[in-house]
Nucleic acid binder design. Structure first.
Lengths: 213, 213, 213, 213
DNA sequence: TATGAATGAGGTTTCATTCAT
DNA sequence: CATGAATGAAACCTCATTCAT
């Protein structure tokens, strides 16, 4: 499937160029936000000419969907990896599972934070260009939250399990993203918790939410 | 007191110009992020010349502290207003109070969201320029959270009340800011909760955190 | 006498302001060239308002004659001082006197170089504004050179004593100014002579010129 | 070799643009000093866009080395030309040779004075940007002065031939530059000598310096 | 009259995008 | 096709000068 603003890259060479550009773009995203990355910089890092960039992408904005594509790709890969697999043992309980999930989220953010950061930033700076990107991205997460909600349905007091799963996923993610990515630069500076301690607090809050009567 | 990058405005006319500039700047912030606002635009909206801007502010970046100043100012004004006053009645309980606070936060964000948004965005885009802005801003909030923690100490299970107050304030704020400001453009799009419903969910989560054993 | 671009300063207060401005201007000239000095800077250093500057001077260019006025004033004062007086003893000879003069020139440049530098620079950068400034300035110098030429007429081989005096004064001054003021920054960096050694070389050259047959 | 602030111009088109810019820059230098030339002006005169200027030069200051490059280039070309070749005949003597050299210098200054003027002015106005430019520029001149000193060693009384060569080159150059370039605008206005007459006076002075005992 | 705030033209620089080679 | 040079609009900032108070 060809995304908005990207051009078909049928030939192997075209594909190779595209891959180099995406890799260069992602590398730059680790250093600075999208607005501070110039097209010339991407080209240079990819080892191709500026013209070649415009042969693969309509314009600079066409790189924004790339952020979301990579985000999705990594999220899926993580979910499929041992680190990201969520397999409660026979003696597990809701609280322990929530803690485990919070820790997993933390691990993912540690690794792919640059994509998450860029995705959030673009959603704020260029909302017009985002469209339904988030919907797809959240689907899988919400689904797995729903699995959890169903699994521990006995312990959970929320009347609407779908809503519960959505809220669970949303609250946990936004808080942890904020803390994992912007601890130093944002209001999180007032907190001095380690990743694990924060994950534990998070799990408590989520447990409270799910079991509140 | 004169902030970094701002120049003293002793004379009434200078003060008037400064006020016009700040008002114009804030108005523009409602429409678009800082990076998309040009100095010429601020000047035009304020009805002064470009040169006049530079007589009051060292450079464009000197407007960033203004965001935090306004944020603080509005937060204080809100806290002092009837809407923002937090006065638990004799029969109040922790859960009810948490709900009330979540609703207040929502109201504030609805009104002054542009400042909160700008503050967060700048913290992400130009962390070097922010410094201790957040510390001051969070002080009051954390203090009032601490009041609450002390008030309901009997119901609360957290061992360290200071940490509890900080986490309470932080989690509540970041989640609600995210939802209030970026519901449409961010991952919040997957949720379809009203402000009140979200505030209620928030209160449950916070209650869970505070009372978790 | 009121110079071009300067305004009459009859009242004592006006005179005082003018003096403060001139002093501030000269002080700044020691640090940087005219083009890099702003009107606001002069005003500030003088402790008066920008408006006050424009009450005393038509515009920034009206400060240029001030350079020449000060130059003249200092040159006259120096010539009248013991250091600058040129009184050959009974057993003096042309060569010794030339050396003495070269050393005197060096001393003057060491002290009032900022004015000489500014005068030369302005003559190069804004020749239109200079007019007859140099004529007056050189008159005294040429006259004293003429005294010398007449005094040692026996040793001197030049047919036209007036021309000899002019060339003597001109060559000596331009070379020494260049060396005294711009040794480091200009082609003089290739030389490594002390002021005295340079003065001696200068005297030899001048002696050669005057006695050449 | 690519100089500080200049960018490589490998391709023919890039080279052509660079050449057009340099030519335009030099043409403008004939009219006015560096500080009064705007980048837009250079671009317009070269028939290219402003952006093209910045693709070839880091910033406006990167044009300063161009002045020195052209200076050197012209000096070398002149030295290699019949006009600039210095070949004393069998019956030549020191004095005649000095006169010949003074006249050559005059011819060069008449032709390339704009570069010499710009070089000197920049050395005065922006000494920080000049660095070792003069060293290279003077090397050749001093070397040829040294040839002369060695050639007429018998007539010359100076103990240190290297120093003699340096002083010779320096004095002659500074004085003649001053007179050739600023006769009208500087203290030279008091003299009314033709180029040849001035060159002759110069030769006498230099002869005096070299033969002084 | 003195102050210093305001003006606005002019300068430098950046960079997404186009296009000649 | 790929390259990278060229374009040009738009941004920031300065400062001599004017003018309201």
């Amino acid at each position: 499937m060809v995304r908005q603003g990207m051009k078909p890259a049928a030939q192997p060479r075209a594909k190779a160029t595209r891959d180099k550009l995406v890799a260069a773009f992602e590398a730059l995203l680790r250093d600075k936000p999208f607005e501070q990355i110039s097209v010339a910089e991407i080209a240079e890092k990819a080892g191709v000419s500026v013209g070649a960039v415009y042969r693969r992408f309509d314009n600079k904005d066409a790189f924004i969907p790339v952020i979301f594509d990579l985000y999705r790709e990594r999220a899926e890969a993580f979910a499929a990896s041992p680190e990201g697999r969520f397999t409660p043992g026979p003696d597990s309980c809701l609280r322990r599972t929530l803690t485990r999930i919070a820790e997993m989220t933390w691990t993912f953010l540690d690794r792919e934070g640059h994509l998450v950061r860029a995705a959030h930033l673009q959603a704020r700076l260029r909302p017009d260009l985002i469209g339904k990107e988030w919907d797809v991205l959240m689907e899988a997460g919400v689904a797995s939250a729903r699995t959890l909600v169903d699994l521990y349905a006995g312990e959970i007091a929320r009347p609407d399990p779908d809503e519960a799963a959505r809220v669970l996923f949303y609250l946990q993610n936004t808080s942890m993203i904020e803390y994992a990515l912007y601890r130093e630069e944002g209001p999180g500076a007032a907190l001095r918790l380690s990743g694990n301690a924060f994950a534990a607090a998070m799990a408590d809050a989520m447990y409270g939410y799910l079991t509140a009567r």
